[in-house]
Simulated assay, not measured.
Amino acid sequence: MRHIAALHALLRAGAPVDEVLHSVCDRARRALPAAAVLVVDAAGAVRVSSGPPLPDLAALAAVAMRGGRVVLRGAVSCVPMPGHGGVPGVLVAAGRRRPPPPRRLEAFAAVAALAIGTGETQATRERERLARDLHDSVVQTLYGISLGAGTAAELVHGDPVNARASLAWIQETASAGLSDLRGIIVRLRPETLVGAGLAAALRRIVDALHFAPGTGAVPPGWGLQLDAEPAVSPQVEETLYRIALEALGNAARHAGASQVTVRLAGDDTRVVLEVVDDGVGFLPFTAGSPGRLGLRSMRERAELVGGTLDVMSAPGAGTVVRAILPSSPAVLSG
């Protein structure tokens, strides 16, 4: 069925969950046909809908979710979404005279379940990454500052010279911790793309992530080479932003680089992003590689929108991360 094929293409392109669910409702309404189609989540709330509201929906959806079975009432079909460890929601369709065929509705329910499951998996990964970032950077920095403050307090009267050195170390460590925290905030706020555009967002990544400790200035070896703003879809734009953020973060944390350059160029069909550093280098995609999970995440993000990601590096030879993406993800029409 062309509608199901188009929905799967939308999933492969990495479209946001609610965008996929809206498309599920719209396409199911046209294909069945139906007067209204709604996605009801596991809590019984209408998440997205197409068409007029349906009365007495909560009780009907609850019956379908509780029993994990199709429920028909009047001209309404209620089909549970297939899930692991529970029903993630139900798809409800109201026919104009009779209930839409449940078997046809089940195909759309399966796509909706995939979209919700994908969204939950991505959210879990982001939470796990945030927890690791907080533990590895901010928590450790605060612990070090606490120890340094205790040392300074003990020395302040008997050994003022070393006490001043300890306070200087605390100041430098706090500045580095602030830079780490800025990086985590930027990771959580891709809305910097909205309005400003990708080129401006890339400049903000550099400004936010890589202040030199104690100076508030971007290190002189960090540079941007940007062509005119590429005309890309919102999905591709966010993918480029996330890849650049990960690559720059790896360069800052692991590479020990003095020169880092971000290049962005595009045309009507594709866009190319490069992050190049002159750091220590490594063997990409091998066990124990610095930022190995991040490298895999970048590659997955590129592939989700139909692009490719290459990482070229060797010990002592620096690193090049190159993402080549279509200007817009390929989605089947119909």
Score class of each variant (00 low, 15 high):
residue 248 L to R: 05
residue 129 R to K: 05
residue 124 T to G: 08
residue 183 G to Y: 01
residue 249 G to K: 07
residue 254 H to M: 01
residue 171 Q to Y: 08
residue 84 H to I: 13
residue 171 Q to H: 10
residue 225 Q to L: 11
residue 92 V to P: 03
residue 46 V to R: 02
residue 29 R to D: 08
residue 57 L to I: 13
residue 10 L to P: 01
residue 127 R to C: 07
residue 241 Y to K: 05
residue 249 G to R: 03
residue 268 D to T: 13
residue 169 W to E: 15
residue 18 D to F: 08
residue 88 P to C: 10
residue 30 R to D: 05
residue 88 P to M: 09
residue 41 D to Y: 02
residue 148 G to N: 07
residue 211 F to E: 12
residue 45 A to G: 10
residue 158 G to I: 12
residue 228 A to W: 04
residue 77 S to Q: 03
residue 138 V to E: 06
residue 52 P to Y: 11
residue 175 S to Y: 00
residue 6 A to C: 10
residue 180 D to I: 00
residue 327 S to K: 06
residue 65 M to V: 02
residue 289 S to D: 08
residue 279 G to M: 06
residue 11 L to I: 12
residue 70 V to M: 03
residue 120 E to W: 09
residue 15 A to Y: 04
residue 301 R to K: 05
residue 317 A to M: 10
residue 59 A to D: 14
residue 51 G to R: 00
residue 304 L to K: 14
residue 184 I to M: 15
residue 188 L to P: 01
residue 191 E to A: 10
residue 205 I to R: 08
residue 154 E to C: 11
residue 146 S to W: 02
residue 197 G to C: 02
residue 295 L to C: 12
residue 116 I to P: 01
residue 117 G to Q: 11
residue 302 A to K: 06
residue 119 G to L: 01
residue 198 L to A: 04
residue 238 E to C: 02
residue 221 G to H: 06
residue 180 D to E: 08
residue 101 P to A: 15
residue 101 P to G: 07
residue 12 R to H: 12
residue 312 M to K: 12
residue 80 P to N: 06
residue 46 V to E: 01
residue 238 E to V: 04
residue 172 E to L: 14
residue 117 G to D: 14
residue 230 P to F: 11
residue 247 A to V: 10
residue 244 A to D: 03
residue 220 P to S: 03
residue 142 L to W: 09
residue 328 S to A: 15
residue 234 P to R: 12
residue 252 A to P: 02
residue 248 L to Q: 10
residue 99 P to K: 02
residue 37 V to F: 05
residue 171 Q to M: 09
residue 239 T to N: 01
residue 297 S to V: 13
residue 296 R to V: 14
residue 45 A to N: 13
residue 306 G to T: 01
residue 52 P to H: 08
residue 5 A to V: 08
residue 91 L to F: 04
residue 43 A to S: 15
